[in-house]
């Protein structure tokens, strides 16, 4: 069965390592914070100027001076640090953030990503997404395998305006874990109960399938 949003987030949480500094994008990526393994220390960065994002505040404890990049009220953890936007993107551009997780409309076989603009429909701006994808050491895309109309979001090449080129390393969808290789998409794992044929059918780009493909362990 295809994973729900939380399932995708749980699978991505398995990519975390102790000591990682991680930037989580808006949407499914934000949910990854709920599945950080016990005992593991991961510091979440918010590009508007915080290392050490904590849980949402209790009712009545919201603070207008303490928000995440999605402009939601948050708290901060022990050992947190605040800083300005130029310093924040020095961390990102300088390669100091270990992992970036973000959503996307489309990903191409060569790692290109389109995530910010649908011409004539959605033109709100790229925010920090272009800075993040251009510089992160490791980028994982969290998204559904197909759009609402059933069209594949894993394509030979992107059709929408790009956010970045050749940058995505791994995609975790509701159906599969896919790596980007020199030869295109490579199927690594399938969601529990989802067969390889379905994944192949719903992947428009070249998908390499080698040997037995294990189920995700969630």
């Amino acid at each position: 069965m295809a994973l729900d949003k939380n399932g995708i987030a749980r699978r991505i949480a398995q990519e975390l390592q102790d000591g990682f500094y991680v930037n989580l994008g808006i949407g499914i990526p934000t949910l990854v914070a709920n599945y950080i393994p016990d005992g593991m220390q991961v510091v979440l960065q918010s590009e508007n100027g915080l290392l050490g994002i904590g849980p949402y505040p209790l009712k009545g404890e919201e603070d207008a001076d303490l928000i995440n990049a999605g402009k939601q009220t948050i708290t901060y953890t022990q050992g947190a640090a605040f800083f300005d936007s130029a310093t924040s993107f020095a961390m990102i551009r300088g390669g100091h953030i270990d992992l970036t997780v973000l959503g996307a409309f489309e990903v191409a076989e060569n790692g290109d990503i389109a995530s910010w603009k649908i011409p004539q429909k959605l033109v709100k701006g790229m925010g920090g997404a272009m800075d993040l994808v251009a510089s992160a050491k490791n980028i994982i895309v969290a998204m559904t395998h197909t759009d609402r109309a059933g069209n594949s979001k894993l394509l030979p090449s992107c059709t929408l305006p790009l956010t970045g080129v050749g940058c995505v390393k791994k995609i975790v969808t509701d159906l599969a874990v896919v790596e980007i290789t020199d030869k295109g998409f490579k199927l690594i794992e399938r969601a529990p109960g989802v067969d390889v044929e379905e994944i192949v059918a719903k992947t428009a780009g070249q998908l390499i399938v080698e040997g037995e493909i294990p189920e995700m362990k969630l």
């Binding site: 590009e47 701006g125 800075d131």
Partner: peptide, 20 residues
């Protein structure tokens, strides 16, 4: 924006901060 009354330049956030 859509009616053309407003001119808009969209800039990646980190680039905007660094340009300032």
């Amino acid at each position: 924006l859509l009616s053309g009354e407003l001119e808009v330049e969209l800039i990646p956030q980190g680039t905007l901060a660094e340009r300032c």
